[in-house]
Design a protein around this nucleic acid. Structure first.
Lengths: 240, 240
DNA sequence: TCGTCAATTATGTCTATACATTATGGACGA
DNA sequence: TCGTCCATAATGTATAGACATAATTGACGA
């Protein structure tokens, strides 16, 4: 292994943490000790520790030393699925069917509720995502036309609005809310489900800087869809 | 802003990438250029670029330069709620009620399915989380007793198994699966819901290194619960 | 006894320098 | 024309030292 030294130091300590040799809360040797142990300069040790701290594995405190961090339950990585990609990967055909497309004038309660520009027009889009002609999800979306004027000209005959936005509009901030709801009459009809069937409800708002770009509410057919979140080195991803 | 310089450089470039000023595939200035631009040493610039590369935002190639990476996985941070904490913060009283507790012998299909130690005993625990005596969620948990032998002696009369594990067992890796399901008879009875009511279903597996620690399946009352995931500087957290 | 302050210690940042590595592109020769 | 090889330009790794910052500890004084 011709790894750079700081990588070697990093991976050795990481292994100790992952295998439980070093337990959360315990103190690591000081940079000075490690520097003597590995026979290198302090900068090299520091680089290794910085990487570990960046990855959240250790916590460094001045004067006190470096400590193995307790993993925080409160944050895991959630993979936001690209519906089209997932459907195609399952070997099915993807299709988005536009069912409604309206311009919402400025100043309506809708716009205010969505947290989008109150003084500009909004584009409202509704449609259904199909996998091999079976509905998988439906969505209702509001897009700020002052933020994304090009959106008005898009057909969305085939490409979904979400995919188009992802490709063409850079964003800096997003918030997603996930819940379980019973399908109301409208949703049930769109998804060809009995009313009251459980749906995974996802609401997402997206911003660029302080400017609201879009808000979307999606209902996924409960029996066909799940989200996955992970914490830690996702070596296990391939197992499933 | 008294940020360290390398942090300032990093965040400025990051902002340029996120806002689309620098587009995927485009080349960054060389370290030498940046070092002149910021009036600092090359090491400082390099530290900033290393951090960006570590975060997957740029790709560095020798002789060629550094390039903005094309975003690959689209992921956000998911806040996994601490049930007890949230309930108490709402001003309600939290209680966990144990309804079943069994030792599962080694080698059963259950153990294999859960991905826990196949050659050790498992502890099976079932119970309900209450907020002011209203059921909010029920859970069925399997714990590997070879990984956590102390678990067998815990009463869980008041503290939930999850909270106990979190306090006493270090873990390195976890995977959470989120779906929407209809309450079956058992779940409906525990949660005092009509059968078929929508529930947020959360399944989590936890490991330390390669050793499986626990698997839990939780059903949350759909009308009372939602999860939140975020991407970006969460300045907006307080708005909601 | 209790608080205050300063010395100490460990990490945090930064510089200037050196040499290693590696892909590119151009010079040169067959 | 084509391939080989080398100079070059960029990043990658590492060092030694300087000073900054912050928290702990203990000494000292009220």
């Amino acid at each position: 292994m011709s790894l750079p030294l700081h990588e070697k130091i990093r991976s050795e300590i990481e292994a100790d943490i992952l295998t439980g040799v070093r337990t959360p809360g315990s103190r690591l040797p000081t940079e000075h000790d490690l520097m003597q142990h590995y026979g290198c300069s302090r900068m090299t040790v520091s680089k290794a520790l910085s990487a570990l701290a960046g990855g959240g594995l250790i916590e460094r405190r001045k004067r006190a030393g470096s400590f193995v961090a307790r993993p925080k339950v409160h944050s895991m990585m959630l993979d936001i699925p690209d519906l089209e990609l997932e459907i195609v990967q399952r070997g099915q055909r993807y299709r988005f069917e536009l069912s409604e497309r309206t311009i919402v004038p400025p100043g309506t309660p809708q716009a205010r509720e969505a947290g989008l520009a109150e003084d500009g027009e909004l584009l409202m889009i509704e449609g259904v995502h199909f996998a091999d002609d079976v509905p998988l999800a439906c969505e209702a979306r509001l897009v700020s036309l002052s933020a994304v004027p090009e959106m008005a000209a898009q057909p969305f005959s085939d490409d979904s609005p979400g995919a188009w936005l992802l490709k063409h509009v850079p964003w800096t901030e997003a918030e997603t809310r996930i819940a379980s709801v019973a399908a109301n009459a409208g949703v049930a009809a769109q998804l060809q489900l009995p009313a009251g069937a459980p749906c995974l409800f996802v609401e997402r708002r997206t911003w660029r800087g302080d400017e609201g770009i879009t808000q979307v509410r999606q209902h996924f057919v409960g029996s066909a869809y799940s989200l996955v979140a992970r914490f830690g080195p996702a070596k296990r991803a391939a197992d499933f």
